[in-house]
Design a protein around this nucleic acid. Structure first.
Length: 443
DNA sequence: AAAGCGGGGAA
DNA sequence: TTCCCAGCTTT
């Protein structure tokens, strides 16, 4: 973008009014946040990674715990990966944690553990894209780099009345060019934070607080009466629904009092996190129906449980395919977990570990399972044998089961779980402690 | 350029 | 409940 072109579209007077107004407002009203009490580039970096896709109030306790546990680049680089993942548990987008640690190892090796004051070096770190690079460089080092996130695009799109689709990469490039020009001399650190703070506190996604806005007099979006239709953003695809059968296997004998968990593969969704074992529900059964309402875990009753016979057989075969001999029992509860691209309905069944394990498990391991492996009275006669499903269907999957473990409540602290499984496990152990199984024994 | 990747807060 | 939010990597 040439300077004349920029001047045409956004006059210097407006730009200077905007920058000065926001900066003054920020210096008077900025929130006291943990990462604003330091200029340590490491802490700025950690905070910016956590703040991707995550709100300030959610991040604060995670940030404090994280920098206490891993106080500097070297401590993070040298920590076991599962410690880092456990510290990130519940925060989501777990690849952020793995990329952050990988980048810490790189900083330790390449730059002696010191985060370099260098645009290319910072931008080259794993997990650091254009926004985060600009944030680190400006906030930690005072460099005049733009840091354009969703807040900034919303603010700029309104004040300068830019109705390009902010979902397009081209629009972000445009905004970065504008944002770079807006930085007042020597004020990058405070101005970039002022932009984001303004988007978070005043120029909010819905119902922007124009009446208290420090730059409202010249806000082109508001003057045009279009503040509520900006920014323009094309809609994302709705998440694809998927029903899955989950097994809460109660251990017997050596595993009494424990339940079975497994670790997910190193690649893809929820990589290396732990979970209850679960498999896709058969399409043709009623099990693939979604509950009409609801998110989160709930007691059995609301989403109608799928037909018990077919489901129990499928579960038993899937468990056997993972080398676990267990008898599926009663439907316990349904839980929902929504990702941005996927919506799981987990139908959770209580199962009991079998005492007679290996021979049967070995036989049932045969992928296109022989009906002869069926436990007494379970396989419906005349039904075509169903394949034992691999651990995770889809491209890039080895099809192998990950490691399994038997754990009690105390051992949960040693494993990182996605929230939905954390809730299910806690609900299960709570219920069992209260002896609240009344009449719900597996058949 | 599009898809994959979690979770929580506001309306 | 439903809707909305959102940066980086990989494909």
């Amino acid at each position: 973008m040439t300077d004349t072109k920029l001047e045409e579209r956004w006059p210097r007077e407006d730009r200077e009014f905007f920058s000065a107004g926001l900066l003054d407002w920020y210096l008077a009203h900025k929130r006291d946040l943990p990462w604003r009490r330091t200029r340590d580039p490491y802490r700025i970096w950690v905070s910016e990674i956590m703040l991707q896709q995550t709100r300030v109030d959610t991040v604060i306790p995670y940030f404090l715990r994280f920098v206490e546990r891993f106080p500097d680049v070297t401590a993070l680089a040298d920590a076991p990966e599962e410690d880092v993942l456990k510290c990130w548990e519940g925060l989501g987008y777990y690849s952020r944690a793995r990329n952050l640690q990988q980048a810490a190892k790189d900083v330790k090796e390449r730059y002696g553990g010191v985060i370099p004051n260098d645009v290319e070096a910072v931008a080259g770190l794993k997990g650091v894209g254009p926004y985060t690079a600009g944030a680190i460089l400006s906030i930690a080092f005072g460099r005049p780099e733009p840091a354009v996130d969703g807040n900034v695009m919303r603010v700029l799109s309104r004040f300068f009345l830019i109705d390009d689709d902010v979902a397009k990469p081209k629009t972000r490039i445009l905004m970065e060019g504008l944002a770079r020009e807006l930085i007042p001399e020597g004020e990058a650190r405070e101005f970039n934070q002022a932009l984001m703070e303004h988007g978070a506190m005043t120029c909010t996604p819905k119902s922007p607080r124009c009446l208290v806005c420090p730059v409202m007099e010249r806000c082109a979006g508001r003057l045009a009466g279009r503040e509520n239709e900006l920014p323009v953003k094309s809609k994302a695809k709705p998440p694809r629904p998927e029903t899955r059968l989950a097994a809460l296997v109660e251990g017997r004998g050596a595993h009494a009092g424990k339940v079975l968990i497994r670790q997910r593969p190193a690649q893809g969704l929820l990589a290396r996190m732990w979970e209850l074992p679960h498999w896709p529900a058969p399409e043709e059964s009623g099990a693939s129906e979604r509950p009409r309402t609801g998110t989160g875990t709930r007691r059995s009753g609301l989403p109608a449980a799928p037909p018990e016979e077919a489901v129990r057989d499928r579960l038993r075969r899937s468990l056997a395919g993972a080398g676990i001999a267990a008898r599926p029992g009663k439907h316990w509860m349904a839980a929902e977990h929504t990702f941005s691209h996927l919506q799981w309905t987990l139908q959770v069944y209580l199962c009991r570990e079998e005492e007679l394990p290996l021979p049967m498990a070995a036989e049932a391991r045969v992928p296109y399972g022989a009906a002869g492996a069926a436990a007494p009275g379970e396989a419906p006669a005349g039904e075509a044998p169903e394949p034992v499903l691999p651990f995770e269907a889809g491209p890039g999957s080895s099809g192998d089961s990950g490691p399994h473990r038997w754990i009690g409540r105390e051992e949960m602290a040693g494993y990182a779980f996605p929230n939905v499984f954390l809730k299910l496990l806690n609900a299960y152990f709570d219920q069992r402690e209260q002896g609240e199984t009344r009449g719900q024994e597996p058949e």
